[in-house]
């Protein structure tokens, strides 16, 4: 029974990983850029909500009305000021510039907020620990369920947005060939800035989820980037539904690892990532078919 519980909790945790991976995966599939500062931006959003709650007593859920648009604006500015110029300079430059940016963000957060570990849990009342009991051993946290549902709705919504709307089609077309879309009247710069704004808005939600369900500190961005990256790659980089599967695989592996050994949580997470990567590289066809079958059944 304890194993069943670990797996259920792992699936729920996977919802958070899918949420944090969403923006990374979206930006990679649309702009071909892996934003190394991704995790740092999630922590920035978390501190934004913390500041609103701590200083002005704004509930974190209400705070999202301010923080999510602010993150979208940051995404827009990021694209215009950093990513656009970097990606013109070559494939390696965006990695270097966003890495530099992550160091700046982390240390500025440290300068303003100090080393203390924070959480938004105290500001959302009993919602942080309320749960539904399925049996004596299995409880489903309401917050975890909400985060999971948010991830599913967000990933599904983005998928629909990309396939059904005018702007979504323009984003996909720009991802294919930014020069050619210019010929048919699509402003590639505008489209990419919009895509970056969307990606960063999802990072705002992910930051909120992290801050409510766990604790964070100024240097917590790096592990979030790694988890997001692992979920995105396990699920097949650039595929939004794959990202959900990737998050769940990562969350379940970590929880099973933790059950085996106290240190096993992180080891199992990194381990499953490398094993799946390895399998895909060397038995590419079969591995991809297996993952596709998972994706279809999801």
């Amino acid at each position: 029974m304890i194993w069943v519980n670990q797996i259920i909790q792992g699936v729920l945790l996977g919802g958070y990983y899918a949420l944090i991976a969403c923006g990374l995966s979206f930006m990679f599939s649309v702009m071909g850029i892996i934003n190394i500062a991704h995790g740092s931006f999630a922590i920035l959003a978390a501190f934004g909500l913390f500041l609103l709650a701590d200083q002005w007593g704004v509930s974190p859920f209400l705070g999202l009305i301010i923080v999510v648009p602010a993150m979208a604006a940051i995404g827009w500015a990021l694209q215009r000021a950093v990513l656009e110029r970097s990606s013109r300079a070559g494939i390696l430059v965006p990695i270097l510039s966003t890495f530099g940016l992550s160091i700046v963000i982390d240390n500025l957060l440290f300068e303003f907020f100090g080393a203390d570990t924070r959480s938004l849990a105290p500001y959302i009342g009993s919602f942080s620990y309320d749960s539904w009991s399925l049996s004596d051993d299995i409880e489903i946290g309401q917050l975890s369920a909400l985060i999971f549902a948010t991830a599913v709705i967000l990933l599904g919504g983005l998928q629909l947005f990309l396939s059904r709307t005018e702007l979504g089609r323009a984003i996909r077309a720009t991802a294919e060939d930014a020069d050619t879309v210019g010929l048919i009247g699509v402003n590639a710069r505008l489209v990419n800035a919009t895509a970056a704004a969307i990606a960063m808005a999802t990072v705002g939600l992910a930051g909120a989820a992290l801050a409510m369900r766990a604790t964070f500190d100024p240097y917590a961005g790096a592990p979030q980037l790694i988890f997001a990256f692992e979920a995105a790659v396990i699920g097949g980089a650039g595929s939004l539904w794959g990202t959900l599967i990737g998050g769940i695989v990562l969350g379940v592996a970590q929880n099973i690892g933790a059950q085996i050994n106290p240190q096993g949580f992180f080891i199992a997470g990194h381990g499953i990532f490398l094993v799946i990567l390895f399998a895909r590289l060397f038995w590419g066809g079969a591995g991809a078919a297996f993952l596709n079958s998972l994706r279809r059944s999801a």
Binding site: P94, A222, F229, V233, A237, I267, H270, G271, L277
Partner: peptide, 24 residues
């Protein structure tokens, strides 16, 4: 195995290797 990854994937992939080496 890592050199099969491209650009940003290689960059963060190596970070995962470092995290795993640290834990081990």
């Amino acid at each position: 195995f890592m050199l099969r990854l491209k650009a940003g994937e290689f960059a963060i992939g190596m970070w995962v290797v470092a995290a795993l080496a640290h834990l081990l």
